[in-house]
Structures are given as C-alpha cells and as structure tokens.
Amino acid sequence: MLDDTLIVKNGTLKILIDDKPINRQINIQKNAKLFHFLIQNLNPTEQISSENIINLQENAYYETFILQTDAQKNNLKTVVNLLEKNSKTFIAGIYLADQKQKISMENIVNHLAENTVSEQQVRGIANDFAQTYFAGLINVAPNIKKVSGTQYHKALMLSKTADVKCIPELAIASEDVKCSHGSTIGMLDENQIFYMQTRGIPLSDAQIILTKAFIFEILNKINDQNVLKNFTQKVETWLIKNMK
C-alpha cells in the first residue's frame, strides 16, 4: 500500500528526511539525484512494516542512509530499480536491536540497464533476545552490459541469546558483470582488541571503541551535518544503553 509518490525532476538534487515509516514510490528522473535519510522514531511497542520503491532513469543517482532501531517489530524493504543506463545507487543501512525486538531489513537492487552501479553497506548489532534478519539481493537481468554490484553486511552479536540471520543473494543472468558480496556475523576482532590492550586501553573501552568504529564506518559517509548529528545521537544512545 502506497502512501506517497515522489518525483525528483530532471537534473535536480533533492534531500529527503523521513522520521516515520512511509510507503513511498520515488521516481528519479534523468540526471537527478536524491539523498534519502530514514531515521525512524517510534514507540517501543509499535509493530511496523514499510516498503520503498525507487525507480531510476538515465544517469540518476539514489543514496540512502537507513537507521532501524525502534519499535517492537520493524520491517523495512527497499527496492531500487536501475531502469536506465548509467544510473547508480548507494544504500547504507544500520540496524540495532535489543531486548526482544524483531528487526528485519531487506534491500533489493535490480540492474535492468547497462553501465549501472550499486553498492550496499550494512552494519547490524543484536543484543539480549533480539531477532534480526537481513536479506540483500543483487539481481541482474539478461543481456545487460557493464554492471557492478557490491554488498557488504557485517553483524555483531552482543549476547548469547540473540538470533541473527542473513541471506545475501545474487541472481545474475548477464555475463558482463562484476558482482561481489561479503557477509560476516560474529564478534569483534580479537586481534584488534588485543592490539588496543597492549597499548594500555582496558578491555571494555576497547570493545566500545571498536563497536562504535564499526557503525561509524558507515555514518561517516553522511555529508549533511545536521542529519549526521541526529543519526549519531540515536546510535550513541543505543550503544550507551547496551554496552555497559
């Protein structure tokens, strides 16, 4: 069910900030760019599900930063259709779940034209009894030339009782494609922790620093200072609550 249709006109640049889930269809026209920030502020008991479909025309660009951390049940699906040649997209996602939350993030990128590029960078952290689910699909249609698609997902588990699931999927029907994806689920790198400890940093501090770095690797790509501030505040609140 669609709540809103947005058209980003030829050659224009738009910034869109969503702080509540909306089901959107967005059409980005030729040479236009959209920078989309989703930072959902919700009640802890809410159960929500939303979906965004973004269609890109020739040489269009879609960049989005998603922070999913509120509500009891939070499902978000993002579908990016690279309909015409030279269109590109960058999807950055962060999900942070604790207590008994159930958070799911699904990113689908459809390469339907030549010379299209997609990149996904997702970081997730699960604590307590949270259940998280990440699904990322890079789909390349037949007879498409020069496609590049990458997807990197990393998840940290802070508790023995969390449940983290992910399915990074590739469906490729063209030859002239460079696609790769990587996914890890686990703990912080003990070599990095040890290194910090040998430099005098206590264990718990090292863990916090590394976990923060883990998320900020993505956040640091946000150019808009105000938006960055909002994202940072929310992430830091969660980290303080969950890491000591």
Binding site: L158, C179, S183
Partner: peptide, 11 residues
C-alpha cells in the same frame, strides 16, 4: 555470539 560466520561470493 561467540561463533563466527563469514561468507564471500563473486560473479
């Protein structure tokens, strides 16, 4: 949480 899963794929 002490277990690690790592996956890579290329086409």
């Amino acid at each position: 949480n002490s277990a690690r899963i790592a996956h890579e794929a290329t086409t």
